[in-house]
Write a protein that binds this DNA or RNA. Structure first.
Lengths: 170, 170
DNA sequence: CTTTTTTCATTCGCATCCTAACGAATTGGA
DNA sequence: TCCAATTCGTTAGGATGCGAATGAAAAAAG
């Protein structure tokens, strides 16, 4: 057994291996295709857009969140981006070094750190986001237009459901 | 603007910011919900299952691929898992250190490295995979059963489409 | 008002992740 | 046959990722 496999070959091999193991293949397909899609889409967007601007994937997502909320606490960024606060510290350091964001201690609660875009950061997002959305349109085009809303809603449901179980620290 | 936001609040804020910018919101929703879902599901599975067995996410996926194919070249693992060959080198080193896999040089082409599970590795997968599938069932349950197949197929379509553009090195 | 508990961002140690550069092995064309 | 081009996995260097421990600040308990 060696060499490159197509997606179909893999699926066939899997169903052979697991036959008689009482596995829910439909649920497995949902989860594994979720990760395959996320990985493929992320690679595509990194190569087609982000690399050209010297941005990492997480760096871009953080910029996006800060852009949307104008001023936002780091703990909230971590939650929205889906990373730990520890990881975020490093990413923010990089973004600050590159002059895209600024951190400021909150006057009301001095434990908190508020993040804002610099004018360079805003300029960056204004330029990148339309390009980014063009690629999103391209990627979504592999789903029938009539189904796009349904798929988005289904994914949203999974997100909400999975997070409900995590009333935990990050 | 500060504090925690619900998914709905975020969506409202986004549509306000981008109003008049000629953005395809449907495509944006597909992509952003794809990543939110992948992140939430991954965190859930890491916390509920993998952490207990001392496995990283990627480590588990690599084990899974090797389990499925019994013996497989590293370049193929990298492709199926969706990482670079360089990243895979490190992950394999960890898995080998933990006694879950073995690497062997190919006799036919001495550049190639073939990977196999150890008996510990097989034992691990036999134990973990049913637990893992139970969580997959739980996660998929947030989609109506009748829609699960359709969502999986849609994600599969995106994967194939996004990868078609990447006839590139990894 | 003082002590205890909680909450926050950061640091630490280590695993993962990438691109680029590298050396070894194979392939393919003169 | 020989040598340039390609294809492997690994290394190097830096960014990103985590949980756990840390110290500062705020909140809760007394």
């Amino acid at each position: 057994m060696a060499g490159a496999h197509t997606l179909s070959e893999t699926e066939r091999q899997v169903s052979t291996l697991l036959k008689g193991m009482n596995i829910d293949f439909k649920a497995m397909a949902v989860v594994s295709n979720l990760f395959r899609a996320a990985s493929a889409v992320r690679n595509h967007l990194e190569r087609e857009i982000l690399s050209r601007h010297g941005l990492s994937w997480t760096g871009f997502v953080v910029l996006w969140v800060v852009w949307v909320w104008e001023s936002i606490e780091t703990r909230t960024i971590a939650e929205e981006v889906g990373t730990s606060k520890a990881s975020l510290t490093g990413v923010l350091k990089t973004l600050e070094r590159d002059g895209l964001i600024i951190k400021k201690q909150s006057k009301i609660d001095r434990r908190l750190v508020l993040v804002t875009l610099t004018s360079d950061g805003r300029r960056m997002m204004k330029k990148i986001f339309p390009e980014f959305n063009k690629e999103e349109i391209f990627l979504a085009s592999f789903i029938k237009p009539a189904e796009q809303r349904g798929v988005a809603d289904a994914l949203r449901g999974i997100t909400v459901g999975a997070k409900r179980e995590n009333l935990k620290k990050n």
